[in-house]
Design a protein around this nucleic acid. Structure first.
Lengths: 134, 134
DNA sequence: GGACTGAATCGATGAGTGTCAACATTGACG
DNA sequence: CGTCAATGTTGACACTCATCGATTCAGTCC
């Protein structure tokens, strides 16, 4: 609704990935994180945790959303945790997961025309546009 | 007080992934792209192409950087191409690859400026460090 | 303490993936 | 034409991964 206009097209120098070839070590680290995201179930898990109230969710809250067994969900959560994208904390009987913002920020920064340099305006940049333009 | 912090407070919506649970379809599409990035070789390939002069590079220019056979490199390039992250064009004997900026932008946007998700202490979150380090 | 609930781990299995050697294809150049 | 160099494709193999059932571990409540 509001004028999102041409806010996006900033950042002349941009993502490290575009600026110079990745080192082998760095590519390995990043690949481990991207690989963790390379599964629809894990992506949805991450999103559900991130968008849940308080930025955290317990396993029993996210499990019913999938047609998968509890061990499988637990496995995927572990993959995300070992990739550094999620962290967990036991509270009584339940285990709560929440995202690690810095990890997501790192990935976004590597990929993208970093919105980091954008001042204030980008309330909503329409990803829908970017997506459907195949 | 007129800097980011206030904007952050008034802009609760940020990355789609954090704002609401991903739909199954969307997660599938995104996962296919992330999976393509989930390999160190492919990440380096993408980076080498993106950072090459003119934003494009031919296979013979990137292949020597790896201890892999040429068919293997070709395979990885194809995976990146089918994921929509690269596009290629034949020019004489050579085939030049270049990145699809919109695809990278989409992924970066989905992951989102996690900066916005941390309302309290945005100043101390040094994303630049995360990016360029090492 | 004993029974119950939520979550992680283990072992197995079928599907998927990275890699290579061998072959096919495309275009350049005598 | 015919040959050569640059890429893509195919088939095969080993290895990884997603998934499940069964089991185990951690806490709570009676």
């Amino acid at each position: 609704m509001s004028n999102q206009s041409e806010v996006v097209a900033t950042a002349p120098c941009c993502a490290p990935l575009v600026r110079e070839p990745l080192t082998q070590d760095w590519a390995g680290d990043l690949a481990r994180m991207f690989k963790a995201l390379g599964d629809p179930v894990r992506l949805r898990l991450l999103s559900m945790v991130a968008s849940h109230d308080g930025g955290e969710a317990c396993v029993c809250e996210v499990t019913p959303a999938f047609d998968l067994s509890q061990p499988t969900i637990s496995h995927h959560l572990r993959v995300l945790r070992e990739a550094g994208l999620l962290e967990c904390e036991r509270r009584g009987t339940w285990v709560f997961y929440r995202v690690v913002p810095a990890a997501l920020a790192q990935l976004a920064a590597v990929l993208g025309p970093a919105e980091l340099t954008v001042p204030a305006v980008p309330a909503e940049l329409d990803i829908a546009d970017l997506g459907v333009r195949a």
